[in-house]
Nucleic acid binder design. Sequence first.
DNA 1: CTGAAAGCGCTTACAG
DNA 2: CTGAAAGCGCTTACAG
Lengths: 346, 346
Amino acid sequence: MDDKDERQPLRAPTLKDIAELTGFTVNTVSRALKNKEDISAATRQLIQNKAQELGYIGNALASSLRSGRTKTLAVIVSDVSNPHFAISVKEIETAARKHEYTTFILNTYEDREAERQAIQSALSKNVDGIIICPAQGEGASMDVLRRTGTPFVLIGRHLQDDAMDYVISDDEKGGYMAAAHLLDLGHREILFLNAHRSISSARERLAGYRRAHEEAGVPVRPELIREVPNIERGCRGELKAVLDAKLPFTAVFAFNDMMAWETIYVLQRQGLRVPEQISVVGFDNIQSRMFIPFPLTTVSNSKGKTSRKAFEILMKRIHGQAADGHRFHEVVDTTLVVRESTRPIR
Amino acid sequence: MDDKDERQPLRAPTLKDIAELTGFTVNTVSRALKNKEDISAATRQLIQNKAQELGYIGNALASSLRSGRTKTLAVIVSDVSNPHFAISVKEIETAARKHEYTTFILNTYEDREAERQAIQSALSKNVDGIIICPAQGEGASMDVLRRTGTPFVLIGRHLQDDAMDYVISDDEKGGYMAAAHLLDLGHREILFLNAHRSISSARERLAGYRRAHEEAGVPVRPELIREVPNIERGCRGELKAVLDAKLPFTAVFAFNDMMAWETIYVLQRQGLRVPEQISVVGFDNIQSRMFIPFPLTTVSNSKGKTSRKAFEILMKRIHGQAADGHRFHEVVDTTLVVRESTRPIR
DNA sequence: CTGAAAGCGCTTACAG
DNA sequence: CTGAAAGCGCTTACAG
């Protein structure tokens, strides 16, 4: 008379359920569902049909606890909402899914403590591997990873301690090309809105910037090299300080496209036109993935290639296909993409 | 004489290890590490120190398998590299982390099969809940979620079947404001580059577009309403078709900012200037988070608010704080942000 | 080709 | 305040 039967307990079916319904043991059911060869075709079919019928979904928790593999990885970046990282995350997730890995995403906001927590979370979830763009500063965040032996690959940046796998862009070349391009156009006072020097790519882009100046015989003006304290917070403070100090400059090289756009935005608000009065070069070539109606000259680093490379290396580590002593230090080429935000000095 | 001792097995320490080293049982160790009240302060201290010393990291797999909670959630969107979704994902991850939840990210590329797999992955990983922007088309993807009883909240879109929680934007109002703004400026032929009608927000923005025309007494021209087959692939095909057909229009309303930018890009390539010759309105106000040097008139939907709201509802469901019969149908307000991509018709 | 047993590392419920 | 036992749902290794 009552509705008892309608309110099912909503308990997910388990191997045990299938075992009871088919008359086999959980062992056989498990093997049948994994298409093992040593199960008769008939049994396999029977069990798979029943699983299908019940809408069986394997419990990865239990499976992982026993097998030691979770088919899970973590991507740790400063901020997924930055298109550069968003694109990388997408590429990694796509590659991961092809290999039946599921991806955790964790942000660090360039904060060491948040990074430490992120790594801790990933480890407690027993990820099989981690792809991480280390937060700025030379902390000891990676030490815990090494202690646990969890495979990990740095992406986009490397640390002083080179005994880790990494995939980076050729940042020195990128910085060089950006500055050389501006110098070629006749610019002599090139404001460099750089990231903090604790970030390897910032140091290397600066080295390239310097080399271009040297080769052109143009002295570098230290007051035109500005570091932003945190790339997630933008560069308008630094840019305004330079404008307020009335330091002369005819071009800007920004650490990334986000800052380049911010620079153009601020300059335009100040009545300065780009590229007529000020030339601007960015880094990342985000426009390769998004149509932005402002054609920005920028340095292109292949985010797809970098991400896939990092994933491949991680797979090799996870599957023990790489010698313990060997370190992967991949440097992906950068190229200059000249669009319309740069112009010869008048 | 040999190096045996140096090559430690790299096995992560477990409760059992701490138990053996301190002389307590795993039970007591477990409770001490969780700061349970019924453990003496001295014991707790001793155990916590030992855990610290060993660098103990709890095995969430084991914990979850027993407790039934994973402190894990999945965010399923069409494409994290779209800034709109990237921002949402960031907001959700940030909120989640505050509550000690770790976030899986899964892309659907607007593809039903990829979506089905994504949901399957999330379920097999035993996530406590899912926030999902359903892929276009009215499939049965959510049925499996309902069967398993895993809490989930739709974000950004809802389905025909309204018996699910959702948090959306006021898309009808947004579409209305965009079209009304253009009509006010004197535009009469407003090309609407919309998403596919199987997406609720596309239908509702169109309804708003129509209402604005009705109120202004301007007939809607069906040939100016174009749907793109897949928002991830952009709108240039549709735009070019309209241009090639030489259909007259003086303004464009794009389904989202990405398409608005793409539209401006294509128009500029064709020698048409925005806003001088063609006005353009977008949707999403991505510029609230990124400095883009092209001031786009757009409809703002609060991505932060929407994301946090969805997360809150999910938490309520997970913690059983919401009546089973009740459905959350939140509509977050939209506003028009007038910038410089729109102008009165000459 | 299939089964019986052990165990992954925790938490739960109960005993004392 | 602490312990002994059971069990979460799988996979592994071995037996037959």
